[in-house]
Amino acid sequence: MEIDPFIFRLSIFILTIFVGYYVVWSVTPSLHTPLMSVTNAISSVIIVGAIIAALSGNDGDIFSTSSIYGFLAIILAAVNIFGGFLVTQRMLAMYKKKKKDK
């Protein structure tokens, strides 16, 4: 009997929850805010779904109902991707060590 591909995806899902568990516990508490903004940025990878949806219309009819939702989702996800990564970058650039010359 063949295994449903869903099971493989479920395995990836479950195992990643565990990976996430250990990785996140190792994040230093002082970086919890950047952690939130970067998880926010990466969860916008939902844009792949948005792109597929947006490109579903054919040439004569680019803005069909389903692709309009795709385009809207692209804008939202793009705000998040750029906003999320850049603000994380900005925050992380501020974390400095004590200067030795004292």
């Binding site: 990836i12 990643t16 565990f18 996430g20 996140v24 939130m36 969860s43 792949v48 779904g49």
Partner: peptide
């Protein structure tokens, strides 16, 4: 739904990260 590994991995990561926080 989209059978997309990148999304599944990210979703699980972000989900567990938020839960731990």
């Amino acid at each position: 739904t989209l059978e997309n590994t990148a999304l599944i991995i990210t979703g699980a990561l972000v989900g567990s990260s938020g839960a731990i926080l």
